[in-house]
């Protein structure tokens, strides 16, 4: 696990559901074939209505053209991020697109579990709504030891809630790695 993650922020609103993260019609692709896997990155966040894509102004697609990777590596959401279906393809598609951290005010349970247990990304909770404080394109740094996000664009920083019980799984890199290091399997 990297202790410091830097990159451009991509800001979204409340209730970003799994259909917006990865529309159901794309769930047919293989998650183990390296070429097909790229499709998940390409379609990541493709169902977010364009006026809400990349706040505060909107109109900024997460993926440009035929790419499967985004220029943004840190996603900032509001409340109830990842609500909806159980599809693990949701955090997977964000990971394939290059996202390393999501910071939201709150999460839906299955998306949160999938992010942690699959080792796809770090799902941090913010203490208040950061989607009002950080703009899409801001250069930010997430400090995993200090549980903090620093916005280098405006110089402000915000404390994040510690990962708590799931920290050990996040640190190990996922449920299987955790279970192996703790001798469960």
């Amino acid at each position: 696990m990297e202790n410091k993650i830097t990159g451009k922020a991509y800001v979204l609103g409340d209730n970003i559901d799994t259909d917006q993260i990865i529309p159901a019609e794309h769930l047919v692709y293989s998650t183990s074939d390296p070429e097909e896997l790229k499709k998940y990155g390409h379609y990541a966040l493709s169902s977010v209505p364009i006026e809400k894509a990349g706040l505060p102004y909107g109109g900024k697609p997460f993926i440009v053209g035929e790419n499967h990777q985004s220029e943004y590596t840190i996603v900032i959401g509001g409340t109830n991020f990842g609500c909806g279906s159980s599809r693990e393809h949701a955090p997977l598609s964000l990971k394939v697109a290059g996202v390393k951290v999501v910071i939201a005010q709150s999460y839906a349970r299955i998306f949160y579990r999938n992010s942690v247990d699959g080792g796809f990304l770090i799902p941090y909770e913010s203490q208040f709504k950061l989607s009002d404080k950080i703009k899409t394109g801001d250069f930010v740094e997430v400090d995993v030891e200090e549980n903090k996000i620093i916005n280098h664009t405006d110089g402000k920083d915000y404390q994040l809630n510690p990962l708590g019980d799931v920290f050990e799984i996040v640190k190990a890199g996922g449920l299987f790695e955790f279970a192996r290091t703790s001798g469960m399997i």
Binding site: S86, E88, N114, G118
Partner: peptide
């Protein structure tokens, strides 16, 4: 409901 990693476990 759970995701695929949990189900595989």
């Amino acid at each position: 409901g759970v995701g695929n990693t949990d189900a595989a476990f």
